[in-house]
Each structure stands twice: as structure tokens, then as C-alpha cells.
Write a protein that binds this DNA or RNA. Structure first.
Length: 467
RNA sequence: GGUCCUAUCGUCUAGCGGUCAGGACGCUGGCCUCUCACGCCGGAAACACGGGUUCGAUUCCCGUUGGGACCA
């Protein structure tokens, strides 16, 4: 097999949405899996809706996902001379012709065809006229009128279309601009794309494209039409289903690895495996196991996968992803042993980095604010005795390790006759402001003697004032 | 309206003629436990329907119905 060459051709008319990201991922992973090449092409021929901001947003999203490209980015607006050349080729070989039928006239044809129960299509009025180039003329492709065109689709199998259904479609408008199906084919031929993986919303375009390949004497690429991603109500994914842009998921605290894992696993499988690292995906991704039916985007599953990835990511690898959230919460956090420990106590307790940053608050603030309900429920006068005893035992301690701390708590448990839970909860609220947190000994060890004693004293004062 | 695709628990899916129809998310019962999580053990939950083909269909074929897409 020759080198696999895939491509991703986004239109820069907005952000990169999750559906687009998924097809980009399929193409990228397939190229990487086969040690082939991946080409990026920006389809910006719709000059009205295309913007530089969108181009930048798409690059940004691809970078976050870790998708790089071996060739490009190509911009279609810079390639009009190539399209013109190919139109001429088709004209010269008799595969295309000029047509001067007005849009009104063509529309009338359609109406009439519909009325008589026929297919709405161009009737070939100018087909044999041999018209020369002139003002307001479009260029039409001379499509075969009999026989069939079949797509040998890797995921859907053979899809057969009757050529009689197909009319002589336009490849160049009267203003000289080429049409979508035409430029795609020209580009894919020029760029040597031999494997096209795209959404199955394109299958109906494919017969026209195949006809163009044949007319141009080019070898057909392998087609793999992957099913769409739908929203919860099983309609095409759109804004009302929630976030669409992949970068929004970054802002919500998702790890790119989790996003990749989720998006690729949606519509593709590898036995019962659910969790994949990027490397595993490169190793295992194949076209054979792409499913044939559309899938529903499920936030809960994404969340669960994100939790799994957060748990599996070493602190130092997680740090750069977490840092923006720490900073935006105003913490003076920095990479290092302290943050490593913080992460290790939190990584099994949150589904997103946003949550993790929130839960890390008590590690970074100067004075903890008590959650009103927590203080009300836990910081009661009867806690004064155990808290004061703890303070007394800790005071002379040089070693603030977990083992040393456990001894301190044991001693207080004995003299007070209280169970660990009764002592740990007030300490927890004193140190974190909340009733839920990582293990009490871990927190104490990480926070260190000074902060712990200060916070315990603060709690004692709080209870005394309150009483 | 025409064309095309599609159909296993609520969702993502395994299955590629003979399985107690498996896993994951979510839901749920329990265990662990200093709280919350994590983890572990268990539970409820699916082959859309109707015809064929076959000794035997979730699996192959044809319809129906549902869903989706594209063109208009």
C-alpha cells in the first residue's frame, strides 16, 4: 500500500465545533496510525462568511487537541487559477460546456418536472449547442445519463446511485467562481489525497465527485463516510444542545486527551476498551471499526472520561493544563512539589480542572472562609476541648509527618474518649472551610505546621466569639 | 417531495449463524472509611416490527415503521 494521505478541510466561518474536531481526529489518527501524511486545507471560498478570526480559532483548537499537519495549510482563495485551469481541461476534453440558460428558466424546468412527477433537474438544453464562452454563461459538467455510479465506502459498503438521477451540474458560476464539489475534487487530486474520511452528510455529493475524478482521469480515493454526531434529542448537534466549540471545553476544564478519547470513541470501538491515551489511539485506530449509525453526544460520559484522564495524568503533566484555572482564581500557584502534592490529593475527587482549582482554594488562601452551613453544623463549643488539646500536642512537634500526626490524634482520642470522626470534622472545617475534603492527615502535612496551627487557633477564636 | 444512510439497555458500544446477549456512562443496593471522593462487590435496564433464507437468527435478504442526511 502506498502512503496514506488524509486531509481536514474546515471552512473558517466560525469556531471548530465538536463534529468537525471529530472528523479531523479520525483523519489525523488514521494518518498517524499508518505513518502517512495529514494535510490541512482551509476552504475559504465563501469570502463573505470567512474570517481571519475563524482561521485563528481553528488553528488554536487544533493545537490544543494536539493535531499537527504535514502539509498546508492551503487556502482555496489562493488557488483560483488552478481551478480555472481544470475547468478549461474539462471544457477542452468535452466533459463540460457553457450554458446560458437563466436561473429563472432552470427553476421553471424544475417546477415543471416536479409537477409531472419527474426529478427536478436541468434538462440539458445547452448540452449539444457548443456554445462559446460569453457573458453570464455558466459551465456545466456533462454528466453520464445512464448506468450507475457506486461509492465503495469503507464504512458503509457499496452505495449505488442511478446516473439518470444526476443532472449536468454547474462547476463554474457565471461570475467565474468554481463550485464546491468541483474545487474539492481538484484540490484532493492536486494534493494527492487518497483517503477521504468525512461526515456522511457528504455521501450525496460523492457521486458527482466520482464523476469528476473519472472525467479528469484521476484515480479514485478511498472513501470513509463516518456517521454524524447528534444532540440528545437525536437531531443534528447545534448550540441548543450545549457547547459546540472545542475550545469551550478547554475553558470548562477538560483535558485534550479526554476530549480526544471521547470524540474518537464516539462512533469507533476497539472491543470493550473505553480509556485510551493518544499513543494507544495512534496504535489502534483503524477504519474497520467505525460504526455505521449516528451517535449522541453525551456530556456525562465525557465528564467521566475526563475524570479518568485527570486521575491518570502525573502532576507535572497536569500542571500546565491546570495552571490557567489556578491563576484565574487568583492563587499564587507555581509548578513544584507543593502543587504536585495538592494535585495528588485532589485528582480522584473532581471531574474537571475547573472543579480541581476550586477545591484547591484552601491550599492557597491566607485565611479560610467557612462555608456557613459547615461552620454551623461542625464548629460547636464542644469542639473547643479537642481542638485546644490538638494545638497543645502540635506546638512542640518538629516532625509534622503523617505518622507523627496520627499519634497526636490518637492521644487526643484517648483523653477525650472521642472517635476520630468527631475530631477530624472540626479540624477539617477549620483547615478547609468545608465538610468535604481530602484526608485530614494529608492536608495537615501539606499545609504545614504554621498554617495548620493558625487555622486551628482561628477556629477556636471563632467558636468562642460565636458562643 | 426525491435520493441516500441507519436501527443491540436511557446513552456510547461488543457481537461478525448456535452467547446465561458482554463492557462503559448514568441510575441504584452494599462494602471500605476521618468527610467527600476513589476503589471494590451486586442490581434494574436492550436485540424496533413483520416476512423470508436456514436445523437454527441479534447476526444474512426483503418490506414496514422510526431516526438522520443531502438536494430542492
Amino acid at each position: 500500500m502506498s502512503t496514506i494521505i488524509t486531509r481536514f478541510p474546515p471552512s473558517p466561518t466560525g469556531y471548530l465545533h465538536v463534529g468537525g474536531a471529530r472528523t479531523a481526529l479520525f483523519n489525523w489518527f488514521y494518518a498517524r496510525h499508518t505513518k502517512g501524511r495529514f494535510v490541512l486545507r482551509i476552504e475559504d471560498t465563501d469570502t463573505v462568511r470567512s474570517t481571519q478570526a475563524s482561521v485563528d480559532a481553528i488553528f488554536d483548537a487544533l493545537k490544543w487537541l494536539g493535531i499537527d499537519w504535514d502539509e498546508g495549510p492551503y487556502f482555496q482563495t489562493q488557488r483560483f487559477h488552478i481551478y480555472a485551469e481544470y475547468v478549461q481541461k474539462l471544457l477542452d476534453s468535452g466533459h463540460a460546456y457553457y450554458c446560458t440558460c437563466s436561473t429563472e428558466k432552470v427553476e421553471a424546468m424544475r417546477q415543471q418536472a416536479m409537477a409531472t412527477g419527474g426529478k427536478p433537474k436541468y434538462d440539458g438544453t445547452c448540452r449539444e449547442k457548443g456554445l462559446a464562452k460569453c457573458e453570464n454563461a455558466v459551465v456545466r459538467f456533462r454528466a453520464p445519463q445512464t448506468g450507475t455510479t457506486v461509492i465503495h465506502d469503507v464504512v458503509k459498503g457499496n452505495i449505488v446511485f442511478q446516473n439518470a438521477e444526476q443532472d449536468d451540474f454547474i462547476i463554474q458560476r457565471s461570475d467565474g467562481t468554481p463550485t464546491y464539489n468541483f474545487v474539492v475534487v481538484v484540490d484532493d487530486i492536486c494534493m494527492g489525497i487518497n483517503t477521504i474520511i468525512r461526515g456522511d452528510d457528504h455521501v450525496n455529493n460523492t457521486p458527482r465527485q466520482i464523476m469528476l475524478y473519472k472525467a479528469l482521469g484521476a484515480e479514485l480515493p478511498v472513501f470513509a463516510h463516518v456517521p454524524m454526531v447528534l444532540g440528545k434529542d437525536k437531531t443534528r448537534l447545534s448550540k441548543r444542545h450545549g457547547a459546540m466549540s472545542v475550545t469551550e471545553y478547554r475553558n470548562m476544564g477538560f483535558l485534550p486527551e479526554a476530549m480526544i478519547n471521547y470524540l474518537v470513541r464516539l462512533g469507533w470501538s476497539c472491543g470493550d476498551q473505553e480509556f485510551f491515551t493518544r499513543e494507544e489511539l495512534i496504535e489502534k485506530f483503524s477504519l474497520e471499526h467505525i460504526g455505521r449509525s449516528a451517535g449522541v453526544f453525551d456530556m456525562d460520559k465525557l465528564l467521566a472520561l475526563n475524570a479518568d484522564h485527570i486521575k491518570a495524568t502525573p502532576p507535572r503533566v497536569l500542571t500546565p493544563h491546570l495552571m490557567p484555572f489556578l491563576k484565574s482564581n487568583g492563587y499564587a500557584a507555581e509548578e513544584g512539589d507543593y502543587l504536585d502534592q495538592v494535585i495528588l490529593t485532589l485528582n480522584a475527587r473532581c471531574k474537571t480542572l475547573l472543579e480541581m482549582a476550586e477545591q484547591a482554594r484552601f491550599y492557597y488562601v491566607d485565611t479560610v472562609e467557612y462555608d456557613p452551613a459547615a461552620a454551623e453544623k461542625v464548629l460547636k463549643p464542644e469542639c473547643l476541648d479537642p481542638l485546644n488539646q490538638l494545638l497543645r500536642h502540635m506546638e512542640p512537634l518538629a516532625d509534622f509527618s503523617i505518622t507523627a500526626l496520627e499519634k497526636v490524634f490518637l492521644a487526643v482520642m484517648e483523653t477525650t474518649g472521642l472517635k476520630l470522626g468527631k475530631i477530624a470534622q472540626p479540624v477539617r472545617v477549620a483547615l478547609t472551610g468545608k465538610t468535604a475534603s481530602p484526608g485530614i492527615f494529608e492536608i495537615i502535612e501539606i499545609l504545614g505546621k504554621t498554617k495548620v496551627m493558625n487555622r486551628l487557633q482561628q477556629a477556636v477564636a471563632y467558636i468562642e466569639n460565636r458562643g
